[in-house]
Design a protein around this nucleic acid. Structure first.
Lengths: 151, 151
DNA sequence: TATTCTTTTTAGGAAAGACTAACTATTTCT
DNA sequence: AGAAATAGTTAGTCTTTCCTAAAAAGAATA
């Protein structure tokens, strides 16, 4: 039945996130760009847009630009926020390359709960801000990695 | 076409993992238990089992016990291994409760790549084995958390 | 052994998501 | 404005994965 009360699928969360990024970076979200950002064909997006419209998360009129409603924007921002926290952890702590980190964050952002995310965030702060023996914990870890890989 | 060469879906990875756990803990994997472990109805598993059989990952005969082939076992062990690494990080480092950690690990295990996993593992080692000022890094982090949450 | 209970499979159906091809709007360019 | 190019939608199909209900197989027991 897919109505507004229902949970969003990971899929629709991705739509929302892409629309959000397009709105902020390109000023406007077009079906074509949504499709290419999601890696799907243009013909496939209409269904998703209708679903989001029915849930009250986007303003959708055939052939018009797509905009997020306030509700949609709130959700999109939340998802984008999760993405950033996860990506930070992956790139800054685990030293994963940016592209892989983005792809991985894009998946994990849909399955991580609020408190886990909070702790992850707190943890990254700890590692990059707190110091022991004149170094951040993160720097200590990096040295540790180097040692392991060169010994 | 769903043949043997194809990538496994997350879904089928879960089947494999459950069968693996049943084989090791219960000695035998029955459709009924696979269903309940996956949280689906018994009538739904047959399809999955046939798919895994076609891919050569399980030995499936109608009405017989299900066993993993060597190929299936190798994959299942790999997935179970990913699960453990992720769960360890969640419980030991982020202090997530066991149940949430399991649920989360169960999702992340399908989307994390090899090198990211390796680094995560290395990182948990670093935190729980290396010491500064007489404490492990992990202990340092726990104190840091306590301070943050009580101040 | 025959009946009953449990387990598994079949069959039919639904929902989500993607594809292609054909069609319709909109925009752009002359 | 009219033609051409671009963009968006529709319609029909496919796959995956789940569901329910009914049928079949196997196991257990009187």
């Amino acid at each position: 039945m897919n109505n507004e009360g229902t949970e969003l699928s990971e899929n629709l969360e991705d739509y929302l996130e892409v629309i959000y990024h397009l709105e902020t970076s390109e000023k406007v979200a077009r079906a074509k760009d949504i499709a290419s950002n999601l890696g799907i064909k243009p013909g496939s997006v209409t269904g998703g847009l209708k679903a989001l419209d029915k849930k009250g998360l986007i303003n959708y009129q055939p052939y018009a630009y797509i905009t997020l409603t306030d509700a949609g924007k709130a959700i999109a921002e939340e998802i984008a926020g999760r993405h950033v926290v996860i990506k930070n952890f992956l790139t800054e702590v685990l030293q994963v390359d940016a592209e892989t980190a983005d792809a991985t964050a894009c998946r994990i952002e849909h399955v991580i709960d609020k408190t886990t995310l909070q702790r992850l965030n707190c943890f990254v702060d700890f590692l990059s801000l707190e110091k022991v023996e004149g170094e951040t914990y993160l720097e200590k870890f990096k040295s540790f990695c180097v040692c392991k890989h060169t010994s």
